[in-house]
Amino acid sequence: MNAAKAKVCIVDDDPAVQDSVRALLAAFGFETHCVASAEEFLLGNFNGSIDGMVLDLRLPKMSGIDLLTQLTEEGAAVPTVVISGHRDEDVLAQLASFQAVIFLMKPFAPNRLVEFLSEHCTSSGNDCPDGSNHG
């Protein structure tokens, strides 16, 4: 079955994280796109074209949570895995108000990330890919 792959955008300023998550998701059949900051994401105009997001809270200028808030307000929010090295209670509380968002602390179990995205994102008009695909 050659279903269209779900597109996931990885927003993290650490190149190593970007790379490893990309590799991870690619291995599980996701199409990925990486940006290094919230601003880059917004500039990239991904509205509507992505199915999921892996978001680091700590970003250079606008923080991850602000981005998420903005997207939610715009109605452009997609299922998001928020990753962070810190466990900030305030942020967690805020996250609870979003839909389809989970919080994973680094170092996270990769399978949880994959499972969540697999579960929650559908490719635009397509079914979610199964785990057998790779790329």
């Binding site: 190593a16 790379d19 490893s20 990769p110 790779h134």
Partner: peptide, 16 residues
């Protein structure tokens, strides 16, 4: 955390 996270991801991929 950064390298550990990354390493974990790569290792997961390796397993797959």
């Amino acid at each position: 955390n950064q390298p550990l996270s990354a390493a974990t991801n790569y290792a997961f991929v390796l397993e797959k």
